[in-house]
Design a protein around this nucleic acid. Sequence first.
DNA 1: CTATGGCTTCAGTGTTGACCGAAGCTGGAG
DNA 2: CTCCAGCTTCGGTCAACACTGAAGCCATAG
Lengths: 155, 155
Amino acid sequence: MSVGRETRLSAWIERFAAHFAEEGIPLIGGRILGYLLVCQPSERTAAELSQELEASSGSISTNLKFLVNAGLVTKRTRRGRQAAQFRIDEKRWADLVQRKLDALVSVRDLTESGMRLMSGDPERAVRLRAVDDLYAWLATELPALWDRRPSSTSR
Amino acid sequence: MSVGRETRLSAWIERFAAHFAEEGIPLIGGRILGYLLVCQPSERTAAELSQELEASSGSISTNLKFLVNAGLVTKRTRRGRQAAQFRIDEKRWADLVQRKLDALVSVRDLTESGMRLMSGDPERAVRLRAVDDLYAWLATELPALWDRRPSSTSR
DNA sequence: CTATGGCTTCAGTGTTGACCGAAGCTGGAG
DNA sequence: CTCCAGCTTCGGTCAACACTGAAGCCATAG
């Protein structure tokens, strides 16, 4: 007896959310992202998400706010007594990745200022220099690579 | 009245630890890393770290264990009634960065398996495809870039 | 064998943050 | 103006985790 596609998609959404939970995104926020990436039709109201993901309306609201704020989800309001529709803005996913890369590169600021504090004592700076060299390389290469990305419109 | 170098280094260590605390490394672990990067001489016992960083012996022990396990710190035991010496292994810092990059690239596995679940329904897969394309690109470019790193000995 | 320095383990404490669900707010309909 | 659906806000609960300090556990010296 085989498992239906929707069931397998639910399991996929759960794995998807679990991955991002490890990176600090709340579990429910990750579920919303995964669900909005694959649901048909592509728009959902907060109430629908709440029912579909079995999460409280409060949690859905809080997480949607977070995701909209991060730019990953778009809120579309409509006239009349109608619920707002939420959909994923998959083009903004690159921003998420870029923030990750930026965070990595930003360590360079720390190592650099540390090196400045150690100027005049090269012996003592040896260990920090090794780390600084690594981040200096990242700080030049990663942004350059990012610009070469197929659909890069800006940095 | 100017501030001494050691005082400024303490402040630097604190900023250093704060940065990594945001990435999930315990505050005291980050302090140990920062301190071991700049202390002179380069080796310290657990007791010295405890005093210098004003942290309990238990916290120092737990965090040292974590850092040694991660490969960032090396423990050197000595004969006689002598405390073990801990020092930073700055060459292993690249491993830390690589783990970060690998974590980013690993999302590709998720998007790929998601795409497989959606095969036969290209319309519905549009949103996920955009995300998958991004990670597919990262999955080829990042490892390639890493290999071009100046002192890369392996992937 | 016994004492002791020194790291490790562990139970306890405080804090943080996700989540829930009810109360509150808002904007359009009647 | 009043009602109402539906989103948002907020107090309370719970679990996870960093940190402490004391007890435990070696290994070595005497």
